[in-house]
Amino acid sequence: MIRELDLLGVFLSPMAALLAAAAIAWLVLRRLLELTGVERRVWHPALFNFAAFVLLLSSLVLLVFGPR
């Protein structure tokens, strides 16, 4: 069963924690891609960044709430 997170009396959805974790991972991944020069070879950088974030978020959701 999915439970809410209690943060100083404020109940948050577990999705909020997953969004924060995905955002941090995305920032690290984006920086690595900029340093290696991959971002210059991408056709549409904004679309690529959005797709990378969605892939990271969906991977985290599957990792945490995946089939058991």
Rank of each mutant, 00 (worst) to 15 (best):
R3L: 08
R3S: 09
E4Y: 10
L5A: 06
L5R: 11
L5D: 05
L5N: 06
D6Q: 04
D6W: 04
D6G: 01
L7I: 15
L7S: 07
L8D: 15
L8N: 14
L8H: 13
L8I: 09
G9S: 08
V10T: 15
F11A: 12
F11Q: 15
L12G: 00
L12H: 12
S13D: 14
S13C: 05
S13I: 03
S13A: 11
S13R: 09
P14K: 04
A16W: 07
A17C: 06
A17F: 10
A17R: 12
A17V: 14
L18Q: 09
L18D: 05
L19R: 14
A20N: 03
A20Q: 06
A21H: 06
A21M: 08
A21R: 10
A22D: 02
A22Y: 02
A23Q: 04
A23K: 05
A23R: 05
A23H: 08
I24F: 05
I24Y: 04
I24M: 03
I24V: 12
I24S: 07
A25M: 07
W26L: 10
W26N: 10
W26H: 15
W26G: 04
L27I: 08
L27K: 15
V28G: 05
V28K: 12
V28E: 11
V28Y: 09
L29S: 13
L29W: 13
R30D: 15
R30Q: 15
R31Y: 14
R31W: 14
L32E: 15
L33C: 06
L33Q: 12
L33V: 01
L33K: 11
E34L: 11
E34T: 03
E34A: 11
L35Y: 06
L35V: 10
L35C: 01
T36M: 06
T36E: 14
E39P: 00
E39R: 09
E39G: 00
E39D: 01
R40E: 08
R41L: 13
V42A: 04
V42Q: 07
W43Y: 02
W43N: 00
H44G: 00
H44A: 08
H44Q: 10
P45M: 01
L47N: 00
L47W: 03
L47D: 00
L47A: 10
L47K: 00
L47C: 00
F48E: 04
F48L: 00
F48H: 14
F50D: 04
F50V: 08
A51D: 01
A51F: 12
A51T: 10
F53N: 02
V54F: 12
V54H: 01
V54K: 04
V54G: 02
L55W: 06
L56E: 01
L56M: 05
L57N: 01
L57F: 13
L57C: 02
L57Y: 08
S58M: 10
S59R: 04
S59C: 07
S59Y: 05
S59W: 06
L60E: 04
L60N: 03
L60D: 03
V61N: 06
V61Y: 14
L62H: 11
L62Q: 13
L62A: 12
L62F: 12
V64P: 04
V64H: 09
V64C: 03
V64G: 01
G66L: 02
G66Y: 02
G66R: 03
G66P: 03
P67W: 11
R68C: 00
R68W: 10
